[in-house]
């Protein structure tokens, strides 16, 4: 009986890809893009390619078109960036290896996540991953319930299903940027100005997360050397009041990274933006995403002047 049910769930899951949450559909679509070698047009040489890796904050916060436009003036030839932020993802070495194998490597990579805090686990050390592999349809009931709840607000089941399909198309058009609209419960996808949470720590500066240690870092460093990549450890973002402001330059982190010439630390540990730029307590809305991307571009451009390691 368990096997028959497994088969039934699997068939349903395979055949209904767009009932999944937007973020999950986007994750699957990005994996497919990577697999099929569709990240960069063939006309864009590796020297102009930029990839930003990260979790859902990057997914919703980095707009490639805005970044390209912002850094174009400071460089010759411009860049072509791709947002590879994926929900709940913290390890990128395997993605970079994959890009190398499929001849899609960029020359510059922007990272936001603290790899040393999230060392990749062996398969048996990661139960969620084991369950996910044994039961790829694990989230199917959750997705179906949410889909059924949201469908009436989106013109019915069929329209909502098509909307999922369109979302993926839009995400691919926007080179990986995706606004998680479904997660926002606030008018105009904008938090009120006085928004705060009980878990906020407005007097605490978050500990600098980048430490050159751990299996993931060793792997990234090795890949940087082997493929002549350059990594930028760029700031993530939080709401104003969620944490105390970070110092303008993450000098502690930069100090730690001194022995690694292929890694540049161009700015603070994180940016703070007012709540109105957020669509939910964690993620930026489109307006916030543009602001964050412009800030990153500004940092990279300044970094180019400061360190001579900026974008071409």
């Amino acid at each position: 009986m368990l096997a028959v049910l497994w088969l039934g769930f699997y068939v349903a899951w395979r055949n209904l890809p767009y009932v999944r949450s937007g973020a999950e559909t986007v994750y699957a679509a990005k994996e497919a893009q990577e697999r099929e070698g569709r990240l960069f047009p063939a006309s864009v040489p590796p020297s102009r390619r930029v990839v930003v890796f990260g979790n859902s904050k990057v997914l919703t916060g980095f707009v490639p078109a805005v970044f390209d436009a912002a850094v174009f003036d400071t460089s010759a030839g411009g860049v072509f960036s791709v947002n590879m932020g994926k929900p709940d993802e913290a390890h990128f070495a395997k993605d970079i290896e994959f890009l190398a194998r499929s001849h899609q490597l960029p020359s510059r990579i922007l990272l936001t996540l603290p790899w040393s805090k999230t060392t990749p686990k062996p398969l048996l050390g990661d139960d969620a991953s084991v369950v996910g592999r044994l039961f790829p349809f694990k989230r199917l009931p959750r997705d179906l319930i949410l889909f059924s709840a949201l469908a009436p607000r989106h013109g019915g089941f069929l329209n909502f299903y098509r909307f999922g399909e369109t979302t993926v198309g839009q995400m691919e058009h926007d080179r990986g940027w995706y606004f998680i609209e479904g997660q926002s419960h606030y008018a105009g996808a904008r938090l009120p100005d006085d928004f705060h949470l009980g878990s906020d720590r407005p007097n605490a500066v978050d500990d600098p997360a980048f430490v050159p240690a751990g299996a993931e870092f060793e792997q990234l460093n090795m890949l940087a050397e082997r493929y002549q990549l350059h990594f930028y450890l760029v700031p993530s973002y939080h709401r104003t009041g969620e944490l105390a402001p970070s110092p303008l330059f993450a000098s502690t982190v930069a100090e730690r990274m001194k022995g690694y010439p292929r890694f540049t630390v161009p700015g603070p540990n994180y940016f703070l933006f007012p709540p109105r730029y957020f669509s939910d307590p964690v993620h930026l809305n489109p307006q916030g995403a543009r602001l964050y991307t412009q800030e990153l571009a500004r940092l990279i451009a300044t970094g180019a002047t400061l360190t001579g390691q900026g974008l071409p």
Binding site: F9, D127, A128, V131, K138, R139, L140
Partner: peptide
């Protein structure tokens, strides 16, 4: 399947 679908495995 309740464990599979709704269990937390962290």
């Amino acid at each position: 399947y309740t464990v599979v679908f709704f269990g937390v495995f962290n």
